[in-house]
Design a protein around this nucleic acid. Structure first.
Length: 484
DNA sequence: TAGCAGGAAGGTA
DNA sequence: TACCTTCCTGCTA
């Protein structure tokens, strides 16, 4: 048997709760065929001392230091003889599966179910907590639709066996994980169990789960933020915390766009080391870009330059960019109730506009923090009375919202972008997504582009927007005072 | 089929 | 009352 029962606990304590979330959002390029055929089957179990909690609660415990919540057991086959008295339980799920797409037969959807195997989620590609979890919770004897649910952590000090409790109330039977592990080792090597589970859709059908479109994650995190707002926010907060530490260590900005070439190299080396990726000798030659240029590189370009680690580096960079953009948004709402009005260039028609805002740099999120902090617009915009802005978003006007999106091309560039910033001409690249974002902002779930465009057309009469001289689909133009 | 244009009525702050 | 939102019909690319 190629699998040793020795503990393979390689999970970096700081990695599990942090990167798991962020990595999920960027899960990519998983294929069942990528599952190792002869590598060790995860057999790690963890000591979990927290009280029994349901999956939702488990989420809240993610903040706990891993060292306090999870301790590596020293044996997988003799949990009862473990020095840690056998309280070996799998860790809380890295993601609430109830809000997750179920395993699907299609490769794309399988990517979700197996996102943990993406190398960016862990410095140890071969093994991490969720891979263990996945292997364990899919095991027989329960039918597929019952055992695809993630067992919740359970502390049972009276038992030396490892047990997991299915969340589904209809499935009260416990699974003896020791037995299951053995079955996995003896009967289902080479991740066969995982393969079977991932190809099974009965779980989804039973629980009437609605699969998420993969492209909604890959194509743009912003689109799904409303559905996963708490999760994404948590993930981004974790990412930010880690980034702050790295920034302090490397003496670099949290904003990748602000990095010099040297700082880019420092970040690349740090990330390579963090994920235990092979060092790159000629890093300076491979990446001569500064941070802004680096941020524009595609994943393919990363992979072309660094076949082994390019994908991970690109994914990490995306996480940094996303976390920074999200942080800006938080700071805006926290520090300036009318930040949107000011930041996105809104001025009362008779108010002079700081010319610096015409800089192309305004398109990036970078100067926004500066604008927030310094109050770049010299005059407060004319604001509507009432004050109840509900975090600065509920009363936002559509045209302001569109400028808000346009001002964050790193995040929204695939949905809406400037055609000619100086003339206020922009194009909606993804009408569905923009409409969703608008509906989310206004708490109008039924919003669609038809309605949004109707609102835009109302602006024609008001002189806020107009069609471009040469009418093009999905291309609009701000009228003079509004696009500055 | 998706987007555009605009009328009409209604909702909300 | 302003600002959408919703629904609608008809047209266009």
């Amino acid at each position: 048997m190629p699998h040793s029962c020795s503990t393979q606990f390689k999970l970096a304590a700081e990695q599990f709760p942090t990167d798991s979330y962020a990595a999920y959002a960027y899960a990519d390029n998983f294929d069942l065929s990528l599952l190792p055929e002869d590598s060790g089957i995860p057999t790690t179990v963890y000591q979990y001392n927290a009280p029994q909690i349901k999956i939702e609660s488990a989420w809240e415990t993610q903040e706990q230091p891993v060292s306090a919540s999870y301790a590596p057991a020293n044996s997988c086959s003799s949990a009862s003889s473990s020095a840690s008295s056998g309280h070996q339980l799998i860790p809380p799920p890295a993601y609430p599966h109830s809000a997750y797409p179920s395993p699907q037969s299609s490769p794309q959807q399988s990517e979700f179910a197996s996102f943990k195997y993406d190398c960016l989620s862990s410095p140890c590609p071969s093994l991490d907590a969720s891979s263990i979890k996945q292997e364990l919770h899919i095991l027989p004897p329960s039918p597929p639709e019952s055992n695809c649910e993630t067992p919740s952590p359970r502390s049972d000090t009276s038992s030396s066996s490892i047990k997991a409790e299915p969340l589904d109330a209809e499935l009260e039977s416990y699974i003896d994980l020791n037995t299951l592990q053995q079955q996995l080792l003896d009967i289902k090597p080479n991740h066969q169990a995982l393969r079977e589970c991932l190809e099974d859709t009965t779980f989804q059908r039973k629980h009437n789960l609605k699969p998420l479109a993969l492209e909604s994650f890959i194509g743009g995190l912003a689109e799904v933020r409303g559905d996963f707002e708490p999760v994404i926010s948590l993930a981004l907060e974790h990412a930010r915390e880690r980034e702050r530490a790295i920034c302090a260590k490397l003496q670099i900005s949290q904003d990748p766009n602000a990095w010099t070439a040297a700082q880019v190299h420092a970040w690349l080396r740090s990330t390579l080391a963090q994920f235990k990726l092979p060092p790159v000798d000629n890093l300076e030659l491979q990446f001569s870009e500064d941070g802004a240029a680096l941020a524009l590189l595609s994943e393919e370009e990363f992979q072309r330059r660094l076949p082994e680690s390019g994908s991970t580096l690109h994914a990490q960079l995306e996480i940094w960019k996303m976390a920074y953009a999200d942080q800006l948004g938080n700071e805006m709402e926290a520090t300036a109730p009318a930040a949107n009005d000011m930041l996105w260039g809104y001025q009362a028609p008779n108010v002079e506009q700081d010319e610096s805002e015409d800089d192309e740099d305004m398109e990036s999120a970078v100067p926004l923090a500066t604008a927030t902090a310094t109050g770049t617009p010299t005059s407060a915009p004319a604001k509507r009375s009432g004050g109840a802005r509900n975090g600065g978003s509920s009363h936002i006007h559509l045209w302001q919202f569109l400028k808000e999106l346009l001002a964050a091309p790193q995040v929204n560039g695939t949905a809406i972008r400037w055609i000619d910033r100086s003339k206020g001409i922009f194009k909606i690249e993804d009408s569905v997504r923009v409409a969703k974002l608008w509906g989310r902002r206004k708490n109008r779930p039924a919003m669609n582009y038809d309605k949004l465009s109707r609102s835009i057309r109302q602006y024609y009469k008001k002189g806020i927007m107009k069609k471009t001289e040469r009418s093009q689909r999905l291309v609009y133009q701000f009228c003079q005072p509004y696009h500055q």
